[in-house]
Amino acid sequence: MNAPGGFAYKQRSDGTVIITHHGRAATTLRGGRAAKFLAEVDDDPQQVMARWTGAYKIGNERTAKNHPRNQRR
């Protein structure tokens, strides 16, 4: 399944799920984790795949970027 957000997943016949990001394997899920992912992926596939791979932004990037500790001098 391909989508415009860059994430896609493929379910193999042995139950393994491979999540890719822009064509590169991001993570492989097996067993119970794969089943849990497949039950959850119907809601918002891009968001769910980003969360399962850990490749998502949590909203505080701008705050951290502007923090004095992170300013280059």
Results as ranks from 00 to 15, higher is better:
G15R: 12
K36T: 14
Q11H: 03
N60C: 03
D43H: 13
D44E: 13
T20F: 01
A3W: 10
T63Q: 09
A8N: 09
F37H: 08
D44N: 13
A35V: 14
I58S: 05
D42V: 13
G15C: 12
T20R: 14
W52T: 07
D43T: 15
G59E: 01
M1G: 07
R30N: 13
S13M: 05
N66V: 11
H21A: 03
Q46F: 02
R30H: 12
N66M: 13
E61A: 05
F7D: 02
R73I: 03
P68L: 06
Q47L: 12
A55K: 14
A26N: 07
M49R: 04
Y9R: 09
D43F: 08
R69V: 09
G15D: 11
D14W: 07
E40K: 15
A35P: 01
L29F: 05
S13N: 10
D44M: 08
R62Y: 03
D42P: 06
V41E: 12
R69E: 13
A26F: 04
G15I: 08
Q46G: 11
A55I: 12
A35Y: 00
G6A: 09
R62A: 13
A64Y: 01
N2H: 05
Q71A: 12
A35D: 11
Q71S: 06
S13K: 13
P68C: 07
E61H: 00
A3E: 14
A64M: 08
Q47W: 01
G32M: 06
G6T: 02
A3N: 15
A35I: 06
A8L: 01
T53V: 05
E40S: 14
H21G: 02
V48P: 06
W52N: 09
H67T: 01
V48F: 01
A34I: 08
D42E: 15
R69G: 03
A34P: 09
G23T: 02
A8I: 02
